[in-house]
């Protein structure tokens, strides 16, 4: 615990960007306009990628920016704009008292997990790749090595997931006539 805390203390960047990510995420879900929401989500992803950098996981940080911010979010914005929702597209919820109850419950869960992380003394076993070893062999090499050895099976399974996603998207959006 001590070592983890002091490691984080040396990284004020972590706290700044973690806090920023939370604030931007709140903005993202409270914006009535979907385009603003999407842009705040992009900014949240940027903050998260900075957190990866503070943890010395440069490869994941780069992928985070390239894939999420670059590809997926741009696609999101495209879809929102192509749908041509106009000014009436403001998403206003009329959910009544349930909304406030769920906010209270969400905060209760947040506090519970926050306290749990604070009082927990056990940080578990270190994985196979502690930061010293990563520094020695390099980020990308470690991920590549794992992806094609231990994680070969999930890696292949993920490709089936993508195939299924493609078939599903096509069949849902397919026109009725051939």
């Amino acid at each position: 615990m001590e070592t983890v805390m002091s490691y984080f203390m040396l990284n004020p960047a972590f706290y700044i960007f973690a806090g920023l990510a939370v604030i931007l995420a709140i903005f993202m879900i409270t914006m009535p306009n979907p385009v603003y929401s999407a842009i705040f989500l992009v900014l949240t992803f940027f903050c998260i990628s900075v957190i990866y950098i503070t943890l010395e996981a440069e490869f994941i940080a780069a992928i985070q920016v390239l894939v999420y911010t670059g590809a997926i979010m741009v696609l999101f914005l495209f879809v929102i704009m192509l749908l041509n929702l106009g000014r009436d597209a403001d998403l206003v919820e009329h959910s009544g008292p349930m909304k406030y109850i769920s906010i209270i419950v969400a905060f209760a869960i947040l506090i519970q997990i926050g306290l749990a992380a604070k009082v927990t003394v056990n940080i578990g076993e270190k994985g196979m790749f502690p930061i010293e070893k990563i520094r020695e062999i390099g980020n990308t090499e470690a991920i590549a090595g794992l992806l094609f050895s231990d994680y070969l099976y999930p890696f292949e399974i993920a490709s089936i997931l993508l195939l299924l996603g493609m078939i599903g998207a096509i069949i849902i959006s397919k026109k009725r006539s051939e």
Binding site: Y151, P154, L161, L164, G168, I171, I172
Partner: peptide, 24 residues
């Protein structure tokens, strides 16, 4: 492995979402 269990869960779920909504 929890990771693989999650991947399996997602494959089965996404398949079911599509199967349910296929008849538009």
């Amino acid at each position: 492995n929890l990771l693989v269990i999650f991947l399996g869960l997602e494959i089965l779920s996404i398949g079911l979402y599509v199967l349910i909504g296929m008849n538009r």
